[in-house]
Simulated scan of single mutants.
Amino acid sequence: MSRKSVNFQSNLYDLCTADPEIIDIMISLGFGHIAKPGMLQSAGRFMTIPKGAAMRKIPIEEIVQAFKDRGYEVIA
């Protein structure tokens, strides 16, 4: 089984389009606004995970660990 990966330099729209499970992970971390209609298609096109973490004041280490716990390789 190949390991899933998430590139933190890619925008949220591209990440979530390629792997919808990322939406659930982000919501569980406090990024519920990406589930609102239109948010992923608009802000998600320029927002990266590190930018969102900084805006929401969520430690990037917490986000990295959440992805690792779900079997993802994190590409910074």
Rank of each mutant, 00 (worst) to 15 (best):
P20L: 10
P20A: 14
P20V: 11
P20T: 07
E21P: 03
E21D: 12
E21M: 11
E21K: 10
E21G: 02
E21F: 07
E21N: 08
I22R: 10
I23V: 15
I23N: 08
D24M: 05
D24Q: 13
D24V: 04
I25D: 05
I25H: 02
I25Q: 00
M26T: 03
M26Y: 01
M26S: 00
I27F: 04
I27V: 15
I27G: 07
S28I: 11
S28L: 11
S28M: 08
S28N: 13
L29S: 07
L29A: 07
G30H: 00
G30Q: 06
G30K: 00
G30P: 01
G30I: 06
F31H: 02
F31G: 03
F31S: 01
G32Y: 04
G32S: 15
G32P: 08
G32R: 15
H33T: 13
H33S: 12
H33A: 12
I34G: 02
I34P: 02
I34M: 01
I34K: 02
I34L: 06
I34R: 00
I34A: 01
A35Y: 08
A35E: 10
A35C: 12
K36R: 09
K36E: 12
K36N: 14
P37V: 15
P37E: 13
P37T: 14
P37S: 15
P37Y: 10
P37M: 15
G38S: 00
G38Q: 03
G38I: 08
G38K: 06
M39S: 04
M39V: 14
L40A: 14
L40D: 09
L40P: 05
L40C: 10
L40R: 07
L40N: 08
Q41G: 09
Q41P: 03
Q41N: 12
Q41V: 14
A43C: 08
A43P: 05
G44C: 09
G44Y: 03
G44S: 04
R45A: 12
R45M: 11
R45H: 05
R45Q: 12
F46N: 11
F46Q: 11
F46G: 15
M47V: 13
M47L: 15
M47G: 04
T48H: 05
T48Y: 02
T48G: 07
T48S: 10
I49M: 03
I49S: 00
P50L: 12
P50W: 08
P50D: 08
P50V: 14
P50F: 04
K51P: 01
G52C: 15
G52F: 13
G52Q: 14
G52M: 15
A53D: 04
A53V: 14
A53F: 05
A53L: 10
A54C: 05
A54W: 07
A54D: 11
A54Y: 08
M55F: 11
M55V: 13
M55W: 01
M55D: 08
M55P: 00
R56C: 06
R56N: 07
I58G: 02
I58Y: 01
P59N: 10
P59L: 12
I60T: 09
I60V: 10
I60Y: 00
I60S: 01
E61C: 04
E61M: 13
E62H: 09
E62M: 09
E62R: 11
I63K: 07
I63S: 07
I63W: 06
I63D: 09
V64D: 06
V64S: 07
V64H: 04
V64K: 09
V64W: 01
V64N: 03
V64F: 01
V64Q: 02
V64G: 02
Q65K: 04
Q65R: 04
Q65E: 06
Q65N: 02
